[in-house]
Design a protein around this nucleic acid. Structure first.
Lengths: 106, 106
DNA sequence: GCGACATATGAACAACTATTCAACTATACG
DNA sequence: CGTATAGTTGAATAGTTGTTCATATGTCGC
């Protein structure tokens, strides 16, 4: 991803994990409690392969943790900051809702 | 960027703005108070052109606001959620890296 | 052992994005 | 007016990334 020594890069890289709609949806689902790969794939209408790919990245950044139970592997959100971050960003976006993206100079 | 109707996509897109190290650094600088394009470029060692490109995106998502004063254009962070989001993410990354935030400049 | 199910993984490709460069607009001062 | 400073913008490009497909690994029941 990037320079592992640089804190700013690590922060940016972690934001990058939340910058994809599919991955963000997966993360949100894991915030609601442990969910298997298959369940996530079915719920979000994504291929199991894709979900697995995304979960691997999320786990690498410790945003989710995995636990195998039988044939299934359950993932749930690990860090307590994440919920706040997602909630804050939702509020931010909601506040500016209904605004055109292209605006000209001040 | 993406489907403007979908709130989740908007959230993801806003995270994407913070997922680039240069842009995140610019945003952090703007959180400390109004800064001109030239000042930002010099401080972060980036080309004015690049800074301007990034600021345009940040302004489109209302993460910063611009105000012209003479020949300079000053930008500062607009939304009150953003500071919390960046701070929370710093804590998250610091936790899993075992870094003491008090000692490394945030 | 075998077969079915659940997840993981690697390669390949299309789509996207950060950065640079050059040209452009805007403001101030003589 | 012309010149200098400050910032913007569009095109081109090199690098990155999400997704798919095929294949592999792991687990349970027979």
């Amino acid at each position: 991803m990037a320079d592992p020594d640089d804190l700013l890069h690590q922060v940016a890289d972690t934001f990058k994990l939340m910058s994809d709609a599919s991955r963000l949806a997966i993360l949100k689902l894991c915030l609601e409690g442990p969910a298997s790969v298959g369940h996530i794939a079915e719920t979000l209408d994504l291929s199991p392969s894709l979900v697995s790919h995304h979960l691997r990245l999320l786990r690498a950044a410790r945003l989710v943790r995995s636990e195998r139970r039988g044939r299934h592997v359950f993932y749930d959100a690990e860090d307590h900051h994440i919920r706040c971050i997602v909630a804050d960003m939702l509020e931010h976006v909601a506040e500016e809702a209904g605004i055109d993206l292209e605006r000209s100079a001040a």
